[in-house]
């Protein structure tokens, strides 16, 4: 998984990068299954490897599929990233160990969901009952975000014909400076 991520960093052919990002998503889905999150894995496989790859390919068809040459290593960002990573790793030293039953995550509302959701809500799939019932407000908001994003896409590139006439000022200025 890390290998796909790193090779995405080096590749200049954006087509290959997009394909690798689909593979990366599939690896992530496998990892989720290993960590018991079947619902999440399902979504990641359908969304990450399916829809977003198609959308990115669509974008590449509209733009360019080759990245311009760039400096091999940008040292400023690299140092920044390494420092941030080191700080984060230092921060994990106090974290609960993987699979720890007594971790704080498992001590608040989660036991209640596991013990009571069968009686209070019904469906055997706890994820569904938490998603739709206990955290209904959350999901309503997230559905609204998906809705808004689709509306946003329509607003940005949905109406092609009208934009032909009023080219944005920068493009005009560029044309004038060229002539």
């Amino acid at each position: 998984m890390a290998a796909t991520a790193v090779s995405m960093l080096w590749l200049r052919d954006l087509f290959a990068v997009v394909m690798l990002s689909g593979i990366y998503s599939l690896f992530a889905a496998v990892l989720y299954v290993v960590m018991d999150a079947v619902d999440v894995a399902f979504t990641e496989a359908a969304v990450g490897a399916g829809i977003s790859t198609v959308l990115m390919l669509g974008t590449l068809a509209l733009t360019k599929s080759k990245e311009k040459a760039h400096k091999k290593v940008a040292y400023g960002p690299l140092v920044l990233v390494l420092v941030t990573g080191a700080i984060l790793i230092y921060g994990t030293l106090d974290m609960p160990r993987y699979g720890d039953v007594n971790a704080p995550v498992h001590s608040h509302v989660a036991p209640r969901y596991i013990e009571k959701s069968g009686d209070e809500v019904g469906p055997p799939n706890i994820v569904t009952s938490v998603l739709a019932s206990y955290r209904g407000y959350d999901t309503l908001g997230e559905t609204a975000v998906v809705f808004t994003a689709a509306i946003g896409v329509l607003a940005i590139i949905g109406r092609r014909r009208k934009n032909k006439k009023d080219e944005p000022p920068t493009a005009k200025a560029k044309g004038e400076s060229a002539s």
Partner: peptide, 27 residues
């Protein structure tokens, strides 16, 4: 609860399907 979850999930499904298809059509 069962009815509510069914309705809500159906709403979510419709919105997501509609959003993804709309985005794809636009692209």
């Amino acid at each position: 609860q069962h009815l509510g979850i069914l309705l809500v999930e159906f709403g979510v499904g419709m919105t997501v399907a509609g959003a993804m298809t709309t985005i794809f059509y636009t692209f």
